[in-house]
């Protein structure tokens, strides 16, 4: 069997025997900077806007609706979860895969939440789940994410401290850092190849008041 052949070859090459436990791996290397909330907001905004994304601050749910409505400017959208329905032109949430795929292929914008955001790199962290289908942040040309500021972590290292094994929570964790881009033709930067060419992030203050 291929499996046994390969494992046998590997073991023989390494001079190891079956069931031989290795020494401990090197200790993990994680560095979490101690940044205040304001510092994290400033860095997140700078990092994402440097990539061509846009960052907004909202005081509460009503303000979020207003900002999203302005971003959409009459364009159509699908929302991944409850809470943002009610804006004119926004449909969803849907809980059926085929319907999600159909709508997400048709509308201009996908509106999602985000489990976390990472200040250092301007990154959104989305975990696929009942309230977060994979395709809403992917198929439409515009992605709008609504993230409570309390979810703004310093960096990747802090994310992996809080979520040491993403597989325990979801089959798909995706980190999104700015708009889809390519430089495959003459190294010229072009946004919006396969994923959204526009990324808007609304940071919501103190959602619990």
């Amino acid at each position: 069997m291929e499996r046994d052949t390969i494992l046998h070859r590997v073991r023989t090459a390494l001079g190891r025997t079956a069931n031989e436990a290795p020494a401990e791996p090197p200790p993990v290397y994680l560095r979490v900077p101690d940044w205040s909330l304001e510092e994290r907001i400033r860095r997140f905004t700078e990092a994402l806007e440097a990539l061509g994304g846009r960052v907004y601050r909202a005081g509460g749910t009503a303000a979020v609706q207003e900002i999203v409505w302005e971003i959409l400017a009459g364009r159509s959208a699908i929302v991944s979860a409850d809470g943002l329905s009610g804006i004119p032109g926004v449909e969803g949430p849907y809980h059926d895969a085929a319907r999600i795929r159909e709508a997400a292929s048709r509308v201009d914008a996908g509106i999602t939440g985000a489990e976390y955001a990472l200040a250092e790199t301007g990154t959104l962290v989305l975990l696929a789940g009942p309230a977060e289908p994979r395709l809403i942040s992917l198929l439409p040309p515009i992605h709008i994410a609504v993230v409570p500021v309390a979810r703004l972590l310093a960096n990747l290292d802090e994310l992996l401290t809080k979520v040491p094994d993403p597989a325990a929570q979801t089959s798909a964790m995706v980190l999104i850092t700015g708009p889809s881009r390519t430089a495959d033709i003459e190294q010229i930067l072009i946004r919006g190849v396969h994923g959204p060419g526009e990324v808007h992030v609304v940071l919501v203050d103190s959602e619990t008041g």
Partner: peptide, 21 residues
């Protein structure tokens, strides 16, 4: 780049409750 635009961490097929994948 400090981070590439997309980093996908994928473990197995769609799970119960997940809507697509």
């Amino acid at each position: 780049q400090p981070m590439t635009v997309y980093t996908s961490f994928l473990s197995g097929p769609r799970r119960g409750g997940e809507t697509d994948g």
